[in-house]
Design a protein around this nucleic acid. Structure first.
Lengths: 191, 191
DNA sequence: CCCATTCTAGAACGCTCATTCTAAAAAGGC
DNA sequence: GCCTTTTTAGAATGAGCGTTCTAGAATGGG
């Protein structure tokens, strides 16, 4: 055996994630990462590989965080309306000092056209979220909260599309009330 | 007098616009611009200023093009539903060989957080589009096509939000039918 | 204590970036 | 034909990029 790692891998990866989230892939330089992760340049390469691999790890961490919050905070909610509202508001209010908006949507815009691996990841991520919304709607129909007349497939796709829009606005607007109003209107289709 | 410009300023600016539209600001290098605009590096600086100024001109050209198409293709449509549908489909189908998606939405994601001038431009652009949708809805109410019960302000904000989502999906998906279905569902709120 | 490993430090690599330069060729008005 | 301007061409600048390097200090297990 030998000397142990002195930094918490997840903690420094989180720092990288926040940087990419805030500034995007291209605008985040290795020097920025060195400065904010507070470990040596060499340690970054040894631990995470090159910049692109580090980015993929950061994206993965972001997705895991979202998934955890969905499992813990959204799934237990009995009312479908409230669950979707909570899902949307998760993207509007960052619990800690994390950046506005969503790394997945940012990445979709910045890198999808230039990197097939990332394009697949984004596509899968979008599908997963849309499917989750679909399952919420289905649960709502079975519990009687929602009408049986609704076309859940189309509805899930449409609500998911609105969710993407909200994550763009969350990055570009600081008018929270406007976004909350949009959430209200979006949910009104369930009535 | 002296020698005249040999290139059409608008034609080469359009080339720059397409590059920024396709690749984003950071991923488009001056060398890329020199290669595709087919004029000398020096001529670019003399005619358009530095990279950022050139980008602002390209963004302006994009907005003008959108505005022209709205005036010519959308405004004459009598049915509000059809007008909004046409507006949305404009973003899905690029008439000529122009890139998928929307330079304004791309720029909102990439540059809003780092450049106040651009943030203001994007904000103004979003407001303008939302106002246009509002005016369409108002016209629909006055003509009797839409119910008087609808809250047009909230509705315009919500439809505009969906429009942003569609312009993200237009860049990241090539499943046109899925987007058309989303447009259907989005317009269903007018029924 | 020694060895293996990982940390730190900072220089160095080769490349690309945006921008500016010198220089000469082209073209229209006097 | 000269003057002015714009074109071309391509090199040069200085900074920053991602990545790798040499070198030494720290630390834990045998």
């Amino acid at each position: 055996m030998a000397r142990q790692k002195e930094f918490d891998e997840n903690r420094v990866l989180r720092k990288a994630m926040v940087l990419f989230w805030q500034n995007g892939y291209e605008k985040t330089s290795m020097q920025d990462l060195v400065n904010h992760m507070n470990i040596h340049r060499r340690s970054i390469y040894d631990t995470f590989g090159d910049k692109q691999t580090l980015f993929l790890r950061a994206l993965q961490l972001f997705e895991e965080n979202v998934e955890r919050r969905i499992q813990q905070q959204i799934k237990p909610i009995t009312s479908v309306r409230l669950a979707i509202r909570e899902l949307f508001e998760m993207a509007v209010y960052s619990n800690d000092g994390s950046p506005a908006g969503c790394l997945i949507v940012n990445t979709a815009i910045e890198l999808t056209a230039h990197n097939q691996e990332i394009a697949d990841r984004i596509s899968k991520s979008f599908s997963k979220t849309e499917t989750f919304i679909y399952e919420l709607l289905l649960r709502g129909q079975m519990s009687g909260e929602l009408s049986n007349q609704l076309d859940l497939g189309k509805l899930a796709a449409s609500i998911h599309n609105s969710f993407i829009g909200i994550r763009v606005l969350a990055k570009t607007t600081d008018d929270k009330e406007k976004i909350l109003n949009i959430i209200d209107s979006t949910l009104a289709v369930l009535d």
